[in-house]
């Protein structure tokens, strides 16, 4: 770890200005990812702006849904009574991630910013275009068992490791950010990027912008009854997803009137399964329909040497998550 400057402002405006002046500065929230990366020498900041004193912790109901302050801890969100009642998918996904200790420290904003767990990104002795642009992608011809099926490029095949983000995608979250140019709102689908030619960029935040909250729309709270977050992983807890599926259905008279589906562990961003959602709308609750939805969801998937199993595991997980959400399986 290098030596760095550290400040802890109490006002959001000060924090933003402080970062804007610092070309190699980072906001520090829970530190569960950033500090790890600093220890590994992946991130070598000149300045850390600790934002934990900023007034961004509140979770509150709003006329349009729920507002979750960027500094609310993952545990607080997962334990929040209204979220558990109205947005249970989010609570389930959060609790599928990390460990209780990490969830107590990790914030919602930090989780959105969580960087990939690609082993090549995490080892400075190996090439990684995300860490060191132009150095090459170690994973492309390497051990790519954990890597992407969708939206990858020959520059980067890493995946977004977050569970929370998958639920946020399914629940149509809006990310509120603010910066020197003022506040703006970003739909979750536009927040994380695909790697393309610039895998060093995980998201569409502009330099100096700070996430202030994540808002979930009231419309998504209709998806609170038939819900499942299925995470397939190499051990039962404290492991990143091989594949995960967030499934939430609205059902009337045994007919699916709306579906929300997203996958984790398959792309550089939480992977919303919009085509499968459209297919399921108006369909009956049958395993066959779920299989067709999974088939649709998998269109365009591309595997690498070690992650070919995901071409089978991912659709299976989609089917199983839908069965579990609808009670076809228990």
């Amino acid at each position: 770890m290098n030596q760095f400057q550290y400040t802890r402002p109490a006002e959001t405006a000060v924090a933003i200005k402080s970062l804007a002046k610092e070309p190699n500065g980072y906001f520090l929230a829970g530190g569960t990812n950033l500090v790890d990366m600093m220890k590994m020498g992946l991130v070598v900041p000149d300045k850390l702006i600790d934002i934990n004193r900023l007034p961004l912790k509140k979770i509150e109901r709003t006329p349009t849904g729920i507002h979750i302050g960027a500094l609310a801890s993952n545990s607080e969100v997962a334990e929040h009574a209204y979220i558990k009642a109205q947005y249970p998918l989010l609570a389930l996904a959060i609790n599928a991630g990390a460990s209780p200790q990490l969830r107590n420290m990790a914030t919602v904003g930090g989780n959105l910013m969580q960087r990939t767990r690609c082993p090549y990104f995490f080892d400075t002795a190996m090439p990684c275009n995300k860490r060191t642009p132009g150095s090459g992608c170690g994973a492309l011809q390497g051990i790519n068992r954990m890597h992407a099926l969708f939206g990858a490029s020959d520059k980067c095949i890493a995946v977004n490791p977050s569970d929370m983000n998958v639920a946020m995608a399914a629940l149509d979250a809006t990310i509120h950010v603010t910066g020197v140019k003022g506040p703006r709102a970003i739909n979750i689908g536009d927040f994380h990027r695909l790697p393309g030619d610039h895998p060093e960029l995980d998201n569409t935040l502009q330099k100096g912008e700070l996430i202030t909250s994540v808002d979930l729309p009231a419309a998504s709270s209709a998806y609170n009854k038939h819900v499942y977050y299925l995470k397939i992983r190499d051990r039962t807890s404290y492991a990143f997803a091989l594949v995960s599926v967030a499934a939430a259905l609205h059902i009337e008279n045994n007919t699916i009137t709306g579906a929300r589906l997203a996958m984790g562990g398959v792309a550089h961003k939480p992977w919303r399964l919009t085509a499968a959602e459209i297919f399921l709308k108006g369909k009956a609750i049958t395993e066959d329909n779920f299989k067709q939805a999974a088939q649709i969801a998998m269109q365009g998937a591309k595997a690498y040497e070690y992650n070919k199993f995901k071409l089978k595991l991912a659709p299976n997980a989609i089917v199983q998550s839908l069965k579990l959400a609808t009670g076809l399986a228990s």
Partner: peptide
């Protein structure tokens, strides 16, 4: 990763 002769999961998060 035999191209580098290095472990890719030599840590408590990735070695299970």
């Amino acid at each position: 990763d035999n191209r580098y002769g290095r472990y890719i999961n030599g840590n408590f998060a990735d070695y299970h």
